[in-house]
Design a binder for these strands. Structure first.
Lengths: 344, 344
DNA sequence: GTGAAAGCGCTAACAA
DNA sequence: TTGTTAGCGCTTTCAC
């Protein structure tokens, strides 16, 4: 009469105590895999089984463990998004559209902040890759060689956004910042402006717009653009400061292109406080077309980029890839438009 | 001479093909569990082993699979945050501080958008709970009975934020919107204003501030507050519209309290376009103290809430709980301050 | 300090 | 349509 000590009984239970699919299956009187199918591919299961499993789920309050499911299927249904910082209105629409589009397909978003400096980039990438997301969305382009290598090695579908490059790592949805610079020059020339200034944040894409703007002005035979660079993220305050600085330096100009609407608003306010008429003496063009731009006085001319469209397209790219749908194009240029209003 | 078909060879490999901890361990010449310890609790391992494992990691480019780790340890190192929508500047600082504070402790943030209507709430909660996060941060209070029940049942550490309630589900970090209403009334009275208007978004917390503002004015024996409600999320445009509406209705008032800085800016702009002097004829108080408030002309008086502090405290709450640290207080009131500027 | 064994909760693969 | 089996890659428990 030996004590009946089974291995299973000797060992403390490790589990979280939560209801598992096994519990549901047992209650429904089916095999676990059948319960699994009832939940994830109901079409593969008889109406009877579906009913029993649904009941069991309801009665137990079962919620599927996504970690376990992701591990078993090698599909986490997680998508990572990397932004420089979530504060700063530029990428918000993209994040919001992305989150929403993903949620509609039962994917969730993980948020990572890289900061405008690239110090923590490596740690961030490691953290992200470690989650085995089904896709990564970068706001911007991955430039650093180690970063590129790491992402490539991970083999995770990747979407770079808000920019174009001839050498995308994988998928790409954005627009040309160089074209923006050129288009704004054209626009201002049509408005009979000739002496340009630019106030730009020091982040990469702003700088690119700035250089393109300067180059296009030069190419058009206009006077050299007076530029002021301010630190990213840009603020209304730095816009005010930038205009003050330009004026103090004795620069002459009849139009300013700002790398963000916040900067442009700052310039506008500073101009008013100095009794510089907008657009009479000074035309102002912003970038981003934040929703306040239309309702300022004067209303603000701005470059509009459809951030929602970028987010939706990025989601589509990743979901298509994850669902194994054959790839159409992997680069989308969403373009931009200059929204003409009173300020220019 | 039977063909040497081992079970392992009969079956296609399921794995992702990525380097696993087993590969690292083999290369380092130790058992998998030892490699695991070298990575997660290096202090429990000899210097020699540590070295060998580190080398192996470097050579293979190994990245730990967080899904597997989370499943085995029942700790996902994921934290979910729920916001009504990420567009809308109010919660950004909180999200940003939260993300950052979590990242410093090797936790990642999952973002969920509930929308300002509560329709998808249940689906969202299910999706979140399914990830088995180590904590959930709600911007706002969970009111719906099914939601409360579900969260409670999940047993996941929960932080409600940006509000106070006598009946928190778990932890709480916020401030009193009722007190805000009262404080603004006091402030305006000290500025010798007597006839108040309010422009408020129709989200719950704004409404609460509004009612408190109205009640405090009444309690002080002042004339009835004229209120306009606008749909959330609030915009500059609806601020302009609200002032126009108040004036059109022939209301008389010498001060407006707005439930967001964007609304307040709209009111300010509309006032200027009608040649109403601010603060001369009309004092304006905003809410949120967004970073543009200080640099407007006139600069804007606003109620400041330390969104970063809320995010940091929420992170601390959750990490402490996850690391099993004994609980200090579970409710923190971060308060608010009225930042006096020119507009009031 | 190190290791063997046994799962965590789920789903892919195969078989019926 | 349903079930059996064998993992996914890691960490827990227990033993040395």
């Amino acid at each position: 009469m030996k004590p009946d000590v089974l291995p299973a009984a000797r060992r403390a239970r490790r589990g979280s105590g939560a209801v598992t699919l096994h519990d549901v299956a047992k209650l429904a009187g089916v095999a676990p895999i059948t319960a699994s199918r009832a939940l994830s591919t109901p079409s593969q299961v008889s109406a009877d089984v579906l009913q029993k499993v649904s009941d069991a789920v309801r009665r137990t309050g079962y919620v599927r463990n996504g970690l376990a499911g992701g591990l078993a299927s090698a599909r986490s249904r997680l998508v990572a998004a990397v932004v420089p910082t979530i504060t700063g209105p530029v990428f918000l629409q993209t994040i919001q559209a992305l989150t929403q589009a993903l949620a509609e397909h039962d994917y969730q978003l993980m948020l990572g902040q890289s900061g405008y400096v690239n110090s923590r980039e490596d740690a961030l990438l490691e953290a992200i890759i470690g989650r085995r997301p089904d896709g990564i969305v970068l706001t911007g382009i991955m430039h650093s060689a180690p970063g590129r290598k790491r992402l490539l090695a991970a083999g995770i579908p990747l979407v770079e956004t808000w920019d174009l490059t001839p050498t995308p790592l994988d998928m790409l949805v954005g627009f040309s910042h160089v074209d923006v610079g050129g288009a704004v020059v054209d626009y201002l020339r049509k408005k009979d402006r000739r002496r340009f200034a630019m106030v730009a944040g020091d982040d990469e894409r702003s700088v690119r717009r700035q250089h393109a703007f300067e180059a296009a002005a030069r190419a058009a035979g206009l006077p050299e653009v007076c530029s002021v660079t301010v630190p990213a993220p840009t603020t209304l305050k730095s816009g005010r400061g930038a205009l003050a600085e330009l004026l103090k330096a004795g620069k002459k100009f009849d139009a300013v292109f700002c790398s963000s609407d916040l900067l442009a608003l700052g310039v506008m306010i500073e101009a008013r406080s100095r009794n510089i008429a907008v657009p009479g003496q000074l035309a102002i063009v912003g970038f981003g077309d934040l929703d306040f731009a239309a309702d300022l006085e004067p209303s603000m001319t701005s470059v509009r980029v459809d951030g929602h469209a970028i987010g939706r397209q990025a989601a589509r790219f990743i979901i298509d890839r994850a669902e194994g749908r054959p790839g159409g194009p992997t680069v989308v240029d969403v373009g931009f438009t200059i929204v003409e209003r009173e300020s220019a």
